[in-house]
Design a protein around this nucleic acid. Structure first.
Lengths: 355, 355
DNA sequence: CTGAAAGCGCTAACAT
DNA sequence: ATGTTAGCGCTTTCAG
């Protein structure tokens, strides 16, 4: 049994109220008394009980984070960014990995609500019907990251997927590519339609016939990318460039190209999305649309915390840049975080002759 | 303000005691009463407060997990396994990412203790002096994963690093390699010495002169591996095989080889450690020593939980195999989880002529 | 089968 | 400057 405040009080011959004051550093106490209390606490290896405090104050100073799948390398980056931001704001993180199972997500939502977390960050790529009811009347403040719940007004922070798609397509068009394939995922994935829309927009604007864009759908992982690319590369005429929904799929495309001896970027250009750490280490290094994960994370936390502590400004050191570039939250209810194109080795000029 | 049990009781015209019984499913209540209570709870969207319950029962049903660095792809796997196991056992996870900062680790230890988690899983590759004192007299049960605190008796579960080193070296020797380089990390990393020892053991047993093993130390990431491999490959005679401390370093070695036009595995064989998801997607696919992350995770949780709930056996479905292979915990205080060699494309027969 | 009451460890009025 | 007290929301004797 850990020591309680009463134990400390007894040993220091004061009341628990005084102990509380000393430990919280509020009010004034005689230095001598304070010393006695500190000594007693030390001697007893006293640690205040956060659970008792939570019950009393009605706040747990913890946030829940639900993510789709921690094994997708994008999420560890996000988790880290969020953890960092939360920690800076004085909150601990209850992490829930939904393992791509909507059922579990719903369960976690309940769990977090019962644990009385002060807020929940929902970073799941697909939002099921079960969430809808919950989100319509959330028992705790929620913010969505890179997700969208149609028909429900929930604060959201998300990367600028549309622009991302645009940047990728513009880059490719500029390199002379005319036949493109988009490797995408089911429309339930919140980000997919926007990314694709960006691509389509550019293509249309450039006067490239829409049928020159091959769209193939598969899972958002390496295997899915490989299959999808295989399918796309079987088409005739063959696309000279591939835009993948994310880096994992792009790496799959890289494999598909390699297995049929198609040099990248000589005969095929590939661009990914996310800029996960290994993207730079792929062979060749992946050209990709980078998400600003740190901004995503700190905005998510800030969005949440500002509703919890009306007056406490958060320390988001050095991120003023991101802040200023972000479209106003107040007007849209949605923070859109800019993305940027990172040009590496997987894209090059379109080949001259037929593939 | 969420509804409280008193609200439910009032609405159902019973005492809170009865509500508590119904919701906990203990004791017997008149069906009619039960129905009224259930209806009331439903109507009020009542969710029991886990914090009040924790205070009352003296247990939070949550575990703390401290990891070295979530951005090393090994950890997400581990987090997932642990989360899964914890969830099965009815515990939630408080995740703390130390970001390789011992200072933060210590802070998290305090945080978790104050939050009265029922146990802490410490999966950090380096254990600092600060931990020692804490581990000597931990305020909450602790189990170490892939870590070792010399001089402190703490339950531990770890991969069989020594055997891992052995398997890698044997594989290489069998392929005819005589000149090896080991890419390792500072001795503060718990696993490093054992892996290296395994390698050394095999080499000595095979009668290969010890100076034929080049050992170079660097950081446990891609950059470190690249630098270390560069250094090793500058030696004369050049090693024909590299054993890396982990897969990240092995990928770095792959890059080093590529940048000097050394074909892998034609002129250089490389073996990694961990079997992180991308290992199979490296070019060429990485031969590596795989850790059984699922076993690591479920043992860690089990080790902890068995001390908390004296009589509740844990559901570790389908893992009987791992269980039976594991050296007895009772005798050693340490669970050693078997590893296995996964042979892929980065290793091959030693080249004939000089490098 | 149900209720009254105590108390988990802490904080915040409200005294003194 | 310090103490007294009430109470956060729940579970658990103990009575009835």
């Amino acid at each position: 049994m850990p020591a309680t405040m009463a134990d400390v009080a007894r040993r220091a011959r004061v009341s628990t109220a005084t102990v509380s004051r000393v430990l919280a550093g509020v009010g004034s106490v005689r230095p001598e008394t304070r010393a006695r209390i500190v000594a007693a606490a030390e001697a007893l290896d006293y640690r205040p009980s956060a659970v008792a405090r939570s019950l009393r104050q009605g706040t747990t100073r913890s946030l829940g984070l639900i993510i789709t799948d921690i094994e997708n390398p994008f999420f560890p980056q996000l988790v880290r960014a969020i953890e960092e931001a939360a920690s800076r704001a004085g909150y601990a993180l209850l992490l829930c990995n939904a393992a791509d199972d909507p059922e579990r997500e719903a369960g976690y939502l309940e769990l977090l609500a019962e644990r009385r977390v002060d807020g929940v960050i929902l970073a799941v790529s697909r939002l099921g019907g079960r969430h809808r009811e919950w989100l319509a009347q959330p028992p705790v403040p929620v913010v969505l990251v890179n997700a969208a719940a149609r028909g429900v007004r929930v604060p959201t922070v998300a990367s600028d997927d549309r622009t991302g798609g645009r940047l990728a397509a513009e880059h490719l068009l500029r390199l002379g590519h005319q036949r493109l394939a988009a490797l995408t995922v089911g429309p339930r994935h919140a980000a997919a339609p926007a990314r694709l829309a960006g691509v389509r927009h550019v293509i249309a604007a450039a006067g490239v016939p829409e049928r020159h864009l091959d769209v193939v759908v598969d899972q958002p992982d390496v295997g899915g990318g490989e299959r999808a690319a295989d399918e796309a590369l079987d088409r005739d005429p063959r696309p000279t460039a591939i835009i993948a929904h994310n880096d994992l799929m792009a790496i799959g495309a890289l494999r598909a190209a390699r297995s049929r001896g198609l040099h990248v970027p000589g005969r095929l250009s590939i661009v990914g999305f996310d800029d996960i750490p290994i993207a730079a280490y792929a062979e060749p290094p992946l050209t990709t649309v980078a998400q600003d994960v740190a901004a995503l994370g700190s905005w998510a936390v800030e969005r949440l915390v500002e509703r919890l502590t009306p007056a406490a400004p958060i320390d988001r050191d050095g991120e003023a840049a991101a802040s200023s570039e972000v479209r106003s939250w107040a007007t849209t209810g949605r923070v859109v975080v800019p993305v940027r194109l990172v040009i590496r080795g997987s894209t090059g000029r379109a080949p001259e002759g037929p593939g």
